[in-house]
Write a protein that binds this DNA or RNA. Structure first.
Lengths: 259, 259
DNA sequence: CAGTGGTCTAGACCACTCA
DNA sequence: GAGTGGTCTAGACCACTGT
C-alpha cells in the first residue's frame, strides 16, 4: 500500500507526538526514561518509520526529548533557569558573589554553579562590540569566553569584551577564574562600577556548533543577549554576548519606567 | 539505486541549503522572488525530493524563506522590529502616543502602526495572570486581545488582563480601539500610573495556531513575554502576554542597576 | 489541467552503542 | 552482531494555485 488515509495537517505525526507528550506528562515516562524506538513506534501506530521520526522530532524541538545515537530517545530533565535581568548586577548581589552574578542566581535557585574560563585573549574589536563599547572598530579588547553550568548542566555561554585600555595587564586579561571578587569586583577595583545596563535580546534556532557545545539538538531555539555594563555616567566598559538555550531559560527584569 | 554516498551530517541537505543561502545573500534571489521548486532542486543537485525539501526547511527555520502552498517558495523580507523594553512606558513616550507604546515604537522605526482589538471580555483569571496581578485565581478580569501590525506585517499579539475591579464599566472593557489616550492613558485617568514594570521573557517554537495567525511556518522560534505594569508603590494593575516572532524581533532594555 | 508544496510509505546504508 | 538513531532514495496521493 503506497500511502493515502484521511489526511489533514501532519495528522499522523501529530497524533503520535501527542500520545507521547501525554505519556510523558502523565508520568508514564519519567525524566531519563527511554522512549520506544522509532521502529517500534512505527509498528505500534501502523505508520512508516519516517512518520514516527517526525513525531519525535516535534518533541525534540520542544526540548522534551533528547536523542542519543545508537542508544535511543530519552526524556529530558527540564530545570528552568531564571536569569535576573537587573537584580543580578545590584550592589547587594555583587557583595555576596563568588562566581559573579551567575553564582548568585544559581544559589537563589538551589543549584550548584560552576564557571569555566575557556579563554582570554587580546583581539581587535569587531563592529558589534565596538559600537556597544563606544570605541573604534579594530581597537584592542580582551575577549573572555566563559561557560556556565548549573548542577553540571551547561546553561549558557558568555563572551565578555573589555577594552584593553582597561583590562590590559590585570587579572582580567588572564584565562583563569577571577575568584571571590569576580569580574565586576575587579572592574570596580579599577574604578568601573556597574550602575547602568543595556540588554538586547533576540532568539533564533541553534547553530550546529552551539548545539554540539551545549549538548542539544540543532534547531532548538536559543536566546541571544547583548549585555552592556555602564558606569553611573553611562560610560560603557564591558560588553557580554550571552547565548542560552531557550527551553531551559527565562529572563526576568524589573525596573522603574522613569529614572 | 537505493541510496549511499559519502555520508556525513546531513551533508546533502546542508550543501543545498548553503547554496540557496548564498544565492539569496548574493542577490541572485531578492526579497519576494520565487525559489526553484523542490522537484527542480532535487534534479539539479541529483538528490531526492525529500532531501531538497529538508534543505529548504532549514531556510524556513531561519526565517529566510516562506512557503506558499501550490505556488512555491519565496524569499522573505526581513524587517527587524525593535521593542524598547523600558523606554516604551516612559512619561514622554506616553505623552505622544496614539496607538500606545507600539505606535511610538513604530514611528521611531519609520513604520506605520496598526492595532487591531480582537476582543475584550470578562473572564476569571487563571493562575498565571492571578499570580502576576496579585489577586486570587478565579477573580474576574478584563481580557483584551490586540494584534499589532507594522506596515501591515503582523508583528506581535498582546493579551492584556486588567482586574475587573479597575476596568469594569470603563472603555477598557469594550472591544474597541482606545484612541488617542490609549490603554495607559485610560489607566492613568483611573489613578493607575505605570511607574514600574516587570518583564519575563522566554522563547519556544511557534505552535500551529500562532503560526497560522502570524502567517509563518510552524517551528519558527517565538519570543514570549509576560509584562506586568505597576504603580510607584509596585502595585500591579495590568498584565500583558506578548507573543512575537523571534526572527523579526529584538528586545532592547536599558535600566539602572540600583534604584 | 499542469505544477507546487504537504504528507506519507517502504526500504536502503551508515555510524554508534552495548552485551 | 543486534538494535538504535541519522540520512537518503524513490515514489505515491493529497490540497492548493494558476492558466
Amino acid at each position: 500500500m503506497p500511502d493515502q488515509r484521511p489526511h489533514g495537517d501532519n495528522a499522523e505525526a501529530r497524533a503520535i507526538a501527542a500520545a507521547l507528550r501525554d505519556a510523558i506528562h502523565s508520568g508514564e515516562f519519567n525524566a531519563g526514561d527511554k522512549l520506544p524506538s522509532e521502529r517500534v513506534l512505527a509498528a505500534t501506530y501502523h505508520a512508516a518509520r519516517n512518520t514516527a521520526r517526525a513525531a519525535i522530532q516535534e518533541l525534540i524541538q520542544e526540548g522534551l526529548v533528547k536523542p542519543e545515537h545508537g542508544r535511543g530517545y530519552f526524556v529530558r530533565e527540564r530545570p528552568r533557569w531564571m536569569r535576573f535581568g537587573r537584580l543580578r548586577y545590584t550592589t547587594p548581589m555583587r557583595a555576596v558573589t563568588r562566581h559573579g552574578p551567575f553564582g548568585a542566581e544559581a544559589r537563589a535557585q538551589g543549584k550548584t554553579p560552576r564557571v569555566e574560563v575557556r579563554s582570554a585573549e587580546r583581539i581587535p574589536a569587531d563592529a558589534d562590540v565596538a559600537e556597544r563599547l563606544g570605541i573604534e572598530p579594530g581597537t584592542d579588547v580582551v575577549r573572555r569566553e566563559n561557560w556556565y553550568y548549573a548542577d553540571e548542566i551547561p546553561m549558557q555561554i558568555g563572551i565578555t569584551y573589555i577594552p584593553w585600555s582597561i583590562a590590559g595587564g590585570t587579572a582580567l586579561a588572564k584565562a583563569e577564574n577571577l575568584g571571590p571578587r569576580s569580574l565586576y569586583g575587579r572592574l570596580e577595583d579599577l574604578g568601573y562600577t556597574i550602575a547602568n545596563i543595556r540588554e538586547e535580546i533576540t532568539a533564533r534556532p541553534a547553530t550546529r556548533e552551539e548545539a554540539e557545545g551545549l549538548d542539544l539538538p540543532p534547531g532548538v531555539p536559543m536566546i541571544h543577549l547583548w549585555h552592556t555594563g555602564m558606569t553611573a555616567e553611562k560610560q560603557p566598559f564591558e560588553v557580554t554576548n550571552f547565548c542560552m538555550r531557550a527551553d531551559y531559560s527565562a529572563l526576568d527584569y524589573d525596573m522603574p519606567v522613569d529614572y
